[in-house]
Amino acid sequence: MDQETTIRNLSLLLSPTPRGARLARLLAVEQLRSWDVPSDPAEQIVAELAANAATHGRVPGRDFRLTLYVVGGTLRIEVTDPRGDLLPHATRPAPDATTGRGLLVVAALAGRWGVTPGPHPRKTVWAEVEVPG
């Protein structure tokens, strides 16, 4: 199998807490290192998406899922949470706001990003970055 057809992937369930969001970032960095994929900017994207899932996508007793996969020269980061009724969108917060910039950061760092609804009651927020061959 050559590099164009090799698919590397990781999928983890994590608690929707600040600790779960930090763990998502740390485990993603370790996995990327094992694949010889640079962690920049993926580390920051995972941190933002996991923090959003733990904060805005939280449902008591329901975990969120972090999925990473590399196909060819693209790393896809997906974070799935149980709040499909609450679809995120990037907005510009007030200049003095201390939160609300996560998706703006993701949009600036990723080549592409978006939201995929379902299956009910979930949604997946995803981002893609090019990785060196």
Rank of each mutant, 00 (worst) to 15 (best):
T67W: 00
R33P: 00
R76H: 07
A28L: 07
V59H: 06
E30I: 00
L75Q: 10
D85S: 11
E43W: 02
T55V: 02
V59N: 02
E48G: 10
G61K: 03
D81T: 04
F64C: 13
S39K: 11
T80I: 00
N52S: 12
A50N: 06
A54E: 09
G61T: 03
G73M: 04
P18F: 03
N52T: 05
T67H: 14
R83E: 03
R83F: 06
A50E: 04
G72M: 05
D36F: 05
V59K: 10
R19F: 03
L87T: 09
L32Y: 05
S34D: 14
R33C: 08
S39R: 13
R83S: 09
D81K: 10
V71F: 01
A47V: 00
T74V: 15
A47H: 09
L68Q: 11
S34P: 00
P38R: 13
L86G: 01
G57N: 09
E30M: 12
W35A: 15
Q44C: 08
D36V: 04
Q31L: 04
E30L: 11
I45D: 11
L23H: 07
V70F: 01
R22Q: 14
G84Q: 01
R62M: 12
T67Y: 01
W35N: 15
L87V: 11
F64R: 09
E78T: 02
D63Y: 02
T80H: 00
P60Q: 11
L49D: 12
A42E: 07
R83A: 13
V79I: 13
A54G: 06
A51S: 14
D36A: 15
H89C: 07
A47R: 06
V46Q: 12
L26H: 12
L66I: 10
R76K: 15
L26T: 08
R62F: 03
A24S: 12
H56M: 06
A51Y: 07
R22A: 14
P82E: 05
R22S: 14
D40V: 11
I77T: 12
T80D: 00
P60W: 02
V71S: 14
P41C: 11
P18Y: 03
L87N: 13
G61Q: 03
D85R: 00
R58V: 08
A50D: 06
E48Y: 05
A53G: 09
A24V: 09
R19C: 04
E30R: 15
D40S: 14
F64D: 10
Q44F: 01
G72Y: 02
H89A: 15
T80P: 01
R83L: 02
W35S: 15
D63G: 01
P18D: 08
